[in-house]
Amino acid sequence: MKTLLIPTDFTQQSIQSIPVLARQYYPQQINIVLVHMLKITDNISELLMLSRRSVEYRHIPDNFYKRCTELERKHSHLINKIAITFFYGSTVAVFNNFLEANEVDAIVMPHDNYQLLFKNSIDPEILIGKSKIEVIAKPETQGIMADIVIEDFELTEEHH
Rank of each mutant, 00 (worst) to 15 (best):
S54G: 14
T85L: 01
E134P: 07
H159M: 14
H36K: 06
V92K: 10
I136E: 05
Q142T: 15
I136K: 04
N97H: 13
F95Y: 08
P139K: 03
R67Q: 15
Q12E: 14
D147K: 09
Y88N: 02
L48F: 09
I136L: 12
Y65R: 08
A146P: 03
F10K: 00
S51K: 15
R53V: 06
N113C: 07
T41K: 04
S51P: 11
D147C: 07
S45T: 06
Q29L: 12
I32Q: 00
P139I: 08
L34N: 00
T11D: 09
V33E: 03
S131G: 07
R58S: 13
I128S: 01
T85A: 05
V94R: 09
T8Y: 00
F86W: 00
L155V: 01
T3P: 05
K66P: 00
L116I: 06
A93G: 10
S51R: 08
R73E: 12
S51Y: 07
I107A: 06
H59E: 14
V135I: 15
L38F: 03
H160T: 10
A101K: 10
L50M: 12
T69C: 12
N31W: 02
M37V: 03
H59A: 13
A22E: 05
N102G: 03
R73L: 14
R67P: 00
V33A: 04
I15P: 01
E100C: 08
G89R: 04
P110N: 06
E157S: 09
Q28M: 13
I30C: 09
D123I: 08
S45M: 05
T91Q: 10
H75G: 04
Q115F: 01
A101M: 09
I84D: 07
N120P: 03
V35M: 02
P124R: 01
H77W: 06
K2C: 03
A93Y: 08
L4K: 10
V149N: 02
R58E: 14
T8S: 12
L71K: 00
I107M: 09
I79V: 08
I30N: 06
V20Q: 02
P7V: 03
V135D: 07
K66Q: 13
Q115A: 14
I107P: 01
A22R: 03
I82E: 00
E100V: 09
Y26D: 10
I40L: 12
E154M: 05
N120K: 14
F64G: 04
Y114H: 10
Q13T: 08
S131R: 07
T141R: 12
G143Y: 05
F118V: 07
E134N: 14
I133Q: 08
L4Y: 09
S76C: 13
I44W: 09
K132M: 09
D42M: 08
P110F: 05
I150Q: 01
T85C: 06
T11V: 02
N113H: 14
A93V: 10
D112S: 12
E134H: 10
L21D: 06
F64D: 05
I128M: 06
M49S: 15
E158V: 01
L127W: 04
A22S: 11
L48M: 09
P61N: 10
Q16Y: 01
D62A: 14
V92M: 08
V20S: 04
N102H: 15
V33R: 06
S54H: 11
